[in-house]
Design a protein around this nucleic acid. Structure first.
Lengths: 220, 220
DNA sequence: CGTCCAGTTGACTCACCTCAAACGTGGTGG
DNA sequence: CCACCACGTTTGAGGTGAGTCAACTGGACG
């Protein structure tokens, strides 16, 4: 199983909850693992003996309901840390949205870590994820479809942008499952924004924002 | 301003990001601050020089959109920690849902904490909040009104229950803003659950669950 | 040139929202 | 003790934003 393989490079990091092998860009922490598009990195319920940092590419973390409905928690890009969990098990699953490189760090479950202290950098990463999750909740609970899409575009432009045109790594389905919408609604909303002269859609996976103010207005 | 007053008892805790004055129940960490119902504990954008732990009562943390729409992030009960933020400012506001007692702990912003390490207990609390936020996102993005209400009831029964009857600390408006619904939909859904024999509503703020399985089924 | 699959578009439906009125309960004052 | 008010809640009637189902489009690839 690839996951076994995935863990091995991290074993050089022995201290629990430390980042001794992580440096600012994460590149020298050991060889990056490669995951090709749509590969699962870990599944809901699997042992959470590692956490991860994205080196390149995009990763989605998500949850599933028993009937298959999916909610994407976040898209992670270079520098983002994901997979840090309370218990010994991952409560989300993680998948490669695009081909990507990822560094794994071995961890010890919190309940076995005793009084060993934690790097503030790690805490900062967790707090960043928490803050994103809180913003996401407002979006999911209180915004209309067009506001959701506008917020997503602004957010993604900031994260990924080679300014001018946004390159989408993900499908409409991914966007829908991130925003709590169906693909049809995502598609229709993008078309409407195009008709309104707010964006252009040179190709399916490329979006050019021609009127940022309009998006900012929609963002409240 | 009451917030100034609120901070003082925490000043006995000097080390940044430590919990030396916190013990398991949080009661001996210093005198608890009292907040009466609907008092603001801190506002969005205020300096986050303290974080907090609930001793008794219920606290809500929430965000507002510019037009007044509100999303409640979480209800916090005895033992829960809230108000730990990435930057120097609170990104949510916190208010007393019921009269409550709260302990404040002074903190130092992460960016000034340097390499000082962090208690794993604090990290565990943050991870708990993160996990709750992730569950909340699935609820907001992918569940129907009746599923939302069922999930809320089960959740709240677990947190607050003197088994048998659930005592609600919050209004329908609070529940709606937590679940991403209007008060009318919350009310109608509760009425429907009552008609279906799943719950009883002896009074507005009391709910007796008569059929837990039905709720669990709705919860997926 | 045909197949496949992601995306788009259209027609229709429905879950939830909006607006409005009625209800109930707790508090206040006569 | 009762009349009245305030406010949170419930209920009803009607509207609508987003979902559903289905047909169509357009690149990518063999």
């Amino acid at each position: 199983m690839t996951v076994q393989l995935a863990i091995s490079p991290a074993s050089r990091s022995f201290a629990p909850w430390t980042e001794t092998t992580i440096d600012e860009d994460g590149l020298s922490a050991g060889p990056a693992l490669r995951y090709e598009q749509d590969r699962e990195i870990y599944g809901e319920g699997e042992d959470a003996d590692c956490y991860y940092k994205v080196v390149s590419g995009v990763v989605r973390t998500c949850k599933f309901l028993s009937d298959g409905r999916r909610q994407i928690d976040a898209f992670h890009v270079a520098g983002d840390v994901f997979g840090i969990e309370t218990g010994g098990l991952h409560s989300l699953s993680a998948e490669a949205v695009s081909d990507c490189r990822i560094v794994a760090y071995r961890r010890v479950p919190l309940d076995k870590a005793g009084t060993q202290s934690v790097s503030p950098r790690l805490l900062a990463q967790v707090l960043r994820n928490l803050s994103r999750a809180q913003d996401h909740a407002v979006l999911l609970g209180r915004r209309s479809a067009i506001e959701k899409v506008a917020a997503f575009l602004l957010d993604w432009a900031r994260q990924s942008c080679a300014s001018g045109t946004i390159g989408l790594a993900m499908t409409r389905q991914d966007i829908g499952d991130y925003l709590g919408l169906t693909i049809e609604t995502v598609s229709r909303t993008l078309s409407q924004l195009e008709r309104d002269g707010v964006i252009e859609l040179p190709s399916v996976r490329q979006i050019r924002v021609t009127n940022v103010e309009a998006l900012n207005d929609l963002n409240g």
